[in-house]
């Protein structure tokens, strides 16, 4: 045994190599690459030229950068404020074992199956003022110019909610089902009503699920790209140009890869910062939180 354990480390390290090689090449190197490229000038085809702080100055002086940052922060806050309460309620609802709730749950999860592109296209048709939902229900109020300058941003956020609430509902369903039944029995003996039970037992017991789900929502909201791109391409008139879109437009439409890299650095910093922040907020004891989380 003693002899066997010594040379064991070497082959084990070899087993990590395929994974490590792929990860370093296509994830870690680009992460540093983005910082390097932010100090260059490159149109995506020709030579990459050093540009010093040029791209940074250009991006920081551009009011669009700050608008995009603002839209991204709004996306984050609104996404959280809308999706969290709804997901908790729905998750609690389908955690019940009534037959009809089980059937509803199966249907609730259907949006998870659609790709962002498919979803964006479907909703574009649905929101058509003349041939969409408004016309179908004969409610003129629903026949607005949903994807016009005024409404595009809230509408995109609503579609994002429609897409992601099922996933978070799934998390909360798991969370609620792990709450010990005895807690509810005791509360009932003490005469607590349904609402009291939800407030005093369900919500506090879901603490760690809430942390998990919130982290995913906040970090995830940085990276909404597919849906917004297919629905509005950032428009109309930049009304939905969140940071990820801004980066794409600068890099692959305006051919300013340096400027796009600056925005990418913003995204990385925001993402890492947020992941750390939420973790700090939720307490460092990762393992304990996981056990109770779901």
């Amino acid at each position: 045994m003693a002899t066997a354990s010594r040379p064991r480390d070497t082959p084990l390290a070899v087993l990590v190599l395929p994974s490590l090689l792929m990860f370093v090449t296509f994830a870690v190197v680009p992460l540093f690459g983005v910082v390097v490229l932010s100090f260059t000038k490159w149109d995506g085809i020709g030579a990459i030229l050093p540009n010093g702080l040029g791209s940074w100055q250009q991006v920081l002086a551009d009011p669009q950068t700050w608008r995009s940052l603002w839209l991204t922060l709004l996306t984050m806050v609104i996404t959280w404020a809308v999706q969290t309460p709804l997901s908790i309620l729905l998750g609690t609802f389908i955690a019940g074992h009534q037959r009809y709730r089980a059937v509803l749950a199966v249907l609730y999860f259907l949006p998870l199956l659609l790709s962002s592109a498919a979803l964006a296209i479907a909703f574009k048709a649905l929101f058509d003022p003349n041939f969409g939902l408004g016309a179908g229900l004969h409610i003129p109020l629903l026949s607005q110019d949903w994807l016009g300058v005024q409404l595009a941003f809230p509408v995109v956020l609503a579609v994002i909610a429609w897409q992601f609430i099922p996933f978070h509902t799934l998390l909360y369903q798991g969370g609620v089902r792990q709450i010990p039944v005895q807690l509810y029995e005791a509360a009932q003996i003490d005469g607590a009503g349904r609402f009291q039970q939800f407030l005093r037992i369900t919500l506090p017991q879901l603490k760690y699920t809430i942390i998990t789900s919130s982290t995913l929502m906040l970090v995830g909201s940085l990276t909404y790209f597919d849906l917004v791109f297919v629905m509005t391409e950032g428009g109309p008139g930049n009304a939905t140009r969140i940071l990820a879109l801004d980066m794409y437009i600068r890099g692959f439409k305006a051919n300013q890869m340096g400027a796009a890299s600056v925005i990418a650095v913003f995204l990385v910093v925001l993402g890492l910062g947020m992941a750390l922040g939420v973790q700090r907020l939720g307490g460092r004891d990762k393992n304990a939180s996981q056990l109770e989380g779901l």
């Binding site: 992460l31 690459g33 490229l37 890299s261």
Partner: peptide
């Protein structure tokens, strides 16, 4: 650490590579 990398942010270097 890789869990916290926003994939979108790497598109320019990946395109280059």
């Amino acid at each position: 650490m890789g869990l916290a990398i926003p994939v979108q942010a790497t598109i320019v270097p990946i395109y280059l590579m």
